[in-house]
Simulated scan of single mutants.
Amino acid sequence: MAVIHHTTMQPTKLELLAAWLPTRAWYAGGAGEPRPAKAGGFRLDDPAGEVGIEFMAVTDGTGPDAVAHLVPMTYRGAPLEGAEHALIGTSEHGVLGTRWIYDGAHDPVLVAQLYALLAGRAGAQHQSLDDTTDPTVSASLAAAGTGAELVRVVEGPDHTDVEVRETGADAPLTLRLRRVLRPGADDAPARGRVTAGWRRPDGTTARGTFTVALAGQA
């Protein structure tokens, strides 16, 4: 399992997101200056132990109208070739040195592990504790294959569609990341979904769909 280093990052992830989020087509935080706050999420392990993987929920704003966004991120010790467009920024880690932080929707390691989570072959890990699973995250996928590889990414008004090719499957599968998180059940017909919780600015909790698996192309 991944080791979580309790150290400094300069700039912090939230500082990087404050600059990056307003550049996204799905950003719903309004016209004011972004003030993202960490509100929940979970981690996944990279089997090779090289890439950090985090699904972070961030709130922007205060009160009942605060918007929650989903930002899957990967942390790498070197640039990911061909993914310059997906770079959120770089940060100096107090233990590991320079880290390249990417929008994980474009990172094949995150996509492969998200599919493994849906298929029941990977477990969600606690966001802040070493060697601790997060039982509050639920995931399922009907007729799961043995693996999947990233094909392409398509941005939507409130989501990001990640098209994958499942091992041995004839038709593609789309993993839809719900960039704007909404509490409650997701009624979209789907082969599978990932559901998790987050905290509102007033301290109450919400739970909703982070990802749905849809048959067909993105």
Results as ranks from 00 to 15, higher is better:
residue 76 R to L: 03
residue 171 A to E: 15
residue 62 T to G: 14
residue 42 F to C: 01
residue 151 V to E: 09
residue 52 G to R: 01
residue 200 R to P: 04
residue 150 L to A: 07
residue 204 T to I: 12
residue 86 A to H: 08
residue 117 L to I: 03
residue 166 E to V: 15
residue 195 T to G: 11
residue 120 G to V: 04
residue 63 G to I: 09
residue 211 T to E: 08
residue 28 A to N: 11
residue 110 L to T: 02
residue 64 P to Q: 14
residue 11 P to F: 10
residue 133 T to D: 15
residue 132 T to E: 08
residue 89 G to D: 04
residue 53 I to P: 01
residue 59 T to K: 09
residue 54 E to N: 07
residue 33 E to H: 13
residue 150 L to F: 04
residue 32 G to S: 15
residue 168 G to T: 10
residue 180 V to P: 07
residue 104 G to R: 00
residue 147 G to N: 02
residue 60 D to F: 13
residue 32 G to D: 15
residue 193 R to Y: 04
residue 76 R to Y: 04
residue 64 P to S: 15
residue 58 V to L: 11
residue 69 H to L: 10
residue 14 L to A: 12
residue 192 G to R: 01
residue 139 A to K: 02
residue 25 A to S: 15
residue 102 Y to N: 01
residue 216 G to Y: 10
residue 187 D to K: 13
residue 31 A to R: 13
residue 161 D to P: 03
residue 88 I to R: 02
residue 89 G to E: 06
residue 208 G to I: 03
residue 62 T to A: 15
residue 133 T to V: 14
residue 137 V to D: 01
residue 73 M to A: 04
residue 179 R to Q: 14
residue 1 M to G: 13
residue 85 H to F: 08
residue 195 T to L: 12
residue 27 Y to C: 11
residue 155 E to Y: 03
residue 210 F to L: 14
residue 175 L to G: 01
residue 11 P to T: 11
residue 67 V to H: 11
residue 196 A to F: 01
residue 170 D to I: 07
residue 60 D to C: 12
residue 6 H to M: 07
residue 32 G to R: 13
residue 168 G to H: 10
residue 114 L to T: 03
residue 45 D to E: 10
residue 161 D to N: 06
residue 216 G to A: 10
residue 137 V to T: 00
residue 165 R to M: 12
residue 218 A to Y: 03
residue 47 P to I: 05
residue 148 A to K: 00
residue 171 A to K: 12
residue 16 L to K: 10
residue 68 A to W: 06
residue 55 F to K: 04
residue 160 T to R: 01
residue 47 P to N: 04
residue 175 L to E: 01
residue 162 V to A: 00
residue 205 T to Y: 13
residue 78 A to D: 10
residue 216 G to T: 11
residue 189 P to L: 10
residue 171 A to I: 08
residue 79 P to G: 05
residue 166 E to P: 05
residue 205 T to P: 05
residue 97 G to M: 04
residue 133 T to I: 13
residue 28 A to I: 13
residue 47 P to T: 05
residue 142 A to Q: 11
residue 202 D to I: 14
residue 176 R to D: 02
residue 175 L to D: 00
residue 77 G to A: 07
residue 196 A to Y: 01
residue 96 L to Y: 06
residue 99 R to A: 06
residue 72 P to I: 00
residue 117 L to V: 00
residue 30 G to C: 12
residue 115 Y to I: 02
residue 130 D to S: 06
residue 215 A to K: 11
residue 190 A to K: 10
residue 176 R to M: 04
residue 216 G to E: 08
residue 184 G to C: 11
residue 60 D to E: 12
residue 116 A to V: 02
residue 196 A to K: 00
residue 9 M to W: 08
residue 139 A to G: 03
residue 1 M to Y: 07
residue 189 P to H: 06
residue 98 T to F: 07
residue 2 A to V: 09
residue 109 V to Q: 02
residue 11 P to S: 11
residue 28 A to Q: 14
residue 129 L to T: 09
residue 113 Q to E: 14
residue 68 A to M: 08
residue 212 V to N: 02
residue 212 V to S: 09
residue 71 V to M: 10
residue 167 T to I: 09
residue 104 G to M: 00
residue 33 E to W: 10
residue 131 D to F: 15
residue 175 L to T: 00
residue 191 R to T: 07
residue 186 D to Y: 05
residue 50 E to V: 08
residue 126 H to L: 06
residue 18 A to S: 14
residue 159 H to D: 11
residue 131 D to V: 12
residue 74 T to Q: 01
residue 117 L to G: 00
residue 144 A to G: 08
residue 29 G to C: 13
residue 79 P to F: 05
residue 26 W to D: 05
residue 209 T to D: 06
residue 69 H to T: 08
residue 218 A to W: 00
residue 165 R to A: 15
